[in-house]
């Protein structure tokens, strides 16, 4: 309990919980829409944007959010218009973001260490502004889901049926990928570019495996995600481990455990 008296631990825990809920909620929809890889694509695209921000000395958060939202919409456009398959579009964006960052690192010196810190993130270094951004992302995610829950559910089930039922599929999909981009940028601070997609995919998949309804898959995903973040932060601090890896490691353990639980006659 002594740990909780530290200011930076409190900030880290609070930001972590807000990000954990946001990533878990969008993760369930992304997995069921077979778009789970979008998180990885966007986080790596965001890395390219962070490098640009360093290069031109721009506001990192603002630049990265705008850039990542634009990239997310580009992926959705390419997928919707069937110009490129969705997974291929994501793979191209993924590689482009990393290539951009590597080139910028090669031509500009002096900020390599700062840039690399975004690769692995550190939730214990969250600033007040970043905590505020996490809170904004949390509110946005919750509001979006509350307003569009029924439409998102039927769209995830079948876009064709949803369209006949009068759902504006285009709007829902573009709005959803934009929200995903905003959430991914927040999760980069928690676990870094490399592991950001893990926060989106692993607790959500665990929740889906354990749940016997759509609503409960969202609830379980959030609980597992929040548990992973809280225990990850406390364990990493106590045993001097990197928080990002510990958070994701714990969520992977929960995922493995869920397989075992599914075999037991609990439901």
């Amino acid at each position: 309990m002594e740990l909780l008296s530290y200011d930076f631990i409190q900030r880290g825990l609070l930001a972590g919980i807000l990000i954990a809920v946001s990533t878990a909620l969008i993760g369930v929809f992304l997995i069921l829409k077979r778009f789970a890889f979008l998180g990885a694509g966007l986080s790596h695209a965001a890395f390219g944007s962070i490098a640009i921000s360093f290069l031109i000395n721009a506001d990192i958060h603002l630049t990265t959010v705008i850039f990542t939202v634009l990239i997310a919409n580009l992926i959705e456009f390419l997928t919707q218009t069937r110009k490129v398959p969705g997974d291929t579009a994501i793979a191209v964006i993924f590689s482009s973001g990393m290539a951009l960052a590597v080139i910028i690192l090669g031509i500009a010196k002096g900020f390599g260490e700062n840039l690399f810190s975004y690769l692995f993130g550190n939730i214990l270094m969250v600033s007040k502004e970043e905590l505020l951004y996490s809170f904004f992302v949390f509110l946005l995610t919750i509001s979006f889901l509350l307003i569009f829950y029924k439409k998102l559910l039927i769209t995830t089930f079948s876009e064709e049926i949803a369209r006949v039922k009068g759902v504006n599929i285009s709007f829902i999909n573009y709005a959803f990928v934009s929200l995903t981009a905003v959430v991914i940028v927040a999760s980069i601070k928690a676990v870094g570019v490399i592991l950001a997609s893990s926060m989106v995919v692993i607790p959500a998949m665990t929740g889906i495996l354990l749940a016997n309804s759509f609503l409960m898959s969202l609830v379980y995903s959030c609980l597992i995600s929040v548990f992973s973040v809280i225990s990850g932060i406390l364990v990493s601090f106590k045993y001097d481990l990197p928080p990002s890896g510990t958070i994701v490691g714990i969520s992977i353990l929960a995922f493995i455990l869920s397989f075992v639980l599914r075999k037991l006659p609990l439901k």
Partner: peptide, 12 residues
């Protein structure tokens, strides 16, 4: 793995 119940789908 879609976890939705029939009831959830109908009421959506």
């Amino acid at each position: 793995t879609f976890p939705g119940k029939v009831k959830e789908l109908l009421f959506s």
